[in-house]
Write a protein that binds this DNA or RNA. Structure first.
Lengths: 160, 160
DNA sequence: GCTGAAAGACGGACGTC
DNA sequence: GACGTCCGTCTTTCAGC
């Protein structure tokens, strides 16, 4: 256990630069990364592996432009449930997780109970999804849809 | 123009598999990807480059575990502004964008006007940020902070 | 969509401080 | 204990077909 904690605590300025760089470009080579963080190849490589192994780096993902991939509609959904018991929470969460168009869902403290992000091809597809699946979830008291007008700050790198 | 649109429309089942794969693991080699999508190396490579060039793939990012990177506190902020004029919007958006701890901000249709995600080291840091920078933004009528209790669905791949 | 060849990246081992 | 250099192997990338 101490070893694991040691790893996290041992994160120095170079590790932070590595994290910032890999958040900016997750597919750059170790060679390129090493130059940018002013380190030679093999220690840079070791640090990246250590950050991956310790779980600080959870993974690498391609970011897709939803519109260009044919998914032109994005909505946020505020969900309020009727009763705060554990089976209601469990049902709602399971049902949400089973919908592929639900790309993000968070349970919140306070009102609303959930914040859900939904992506579909079009408004029509969203309406269908809303009527056929979302309104049917048992235990939901209120659903409020909100459209995103503009991304002011979109998924900025964490300030490590 | 037709050429560009042609590219997007020409996205077939293999392209969708490629997008799904690269969303799952953005750092896998072209060799590995080619095997997974049942394609030989060079056409697979060409498709990935085309998807990048057309902007369907916007980039690749490392995903960092905020807690393990020392950023243990995450809050959502609902922002309502006092007057819907363009200079108020512009000011609020500029001020939000200037705060590194603001990792996501979206302007919405309806209430609230903005949904903002903030990440800090601790509750104390958040309080300081809230008092010293967030409450000071001119044109803001109401700020409501909500804590995330649990990520039910976290940044799932788009259903391409 | 395949093949081949050059350039480059990966991922060890080993020596230095 | 962490950095740096070297080197064999694999991957990428760009031809031509």
């Amino acid at each position: 256990m101490l070893g694991l904690f040691g790893r996290f605590l041992a994160m120095d300025a170079i590790d932070k630069k590595i994290l910032a760089e890999l958040q900016r470009d997750g597919r750059q080579s170790i060679t390129e990364l090493a130059e940018r963080v002013q380190l030679s190849l093999s220690p840079c490589h070791r640090r990246v592996r250590a950050l991956e192994a310790s779980g600080v780096i959870e993974g690498y993902h391609a970011v897709i432009n939803a519109k260009k991939a044919g998914l032109g509609f994005e909505a946020l959904l505020f969900v309020t449930i009727s009763r705060s018991d554990s089976s209601t929470f469990a049902t709602v969460e399971q049902q949400l997780a089973d919908i592929p168009e639900v790309v993000q869902a968070q349970r919140l403290f306070g009102e609303p109970d959930y914040l859900v992000k939904v992506v579909t091809r079009s408004l029509e597809d969203y309406q269908r999804l809303f009527d056929e699946r979302l309104t049917g979830i048992p235990g939901v008291e209120r659903l409020r849809s909100t459209l995103v007008m503009r991304n002011v700050v979109s998924d900025r790198p964490l300030p490590v």
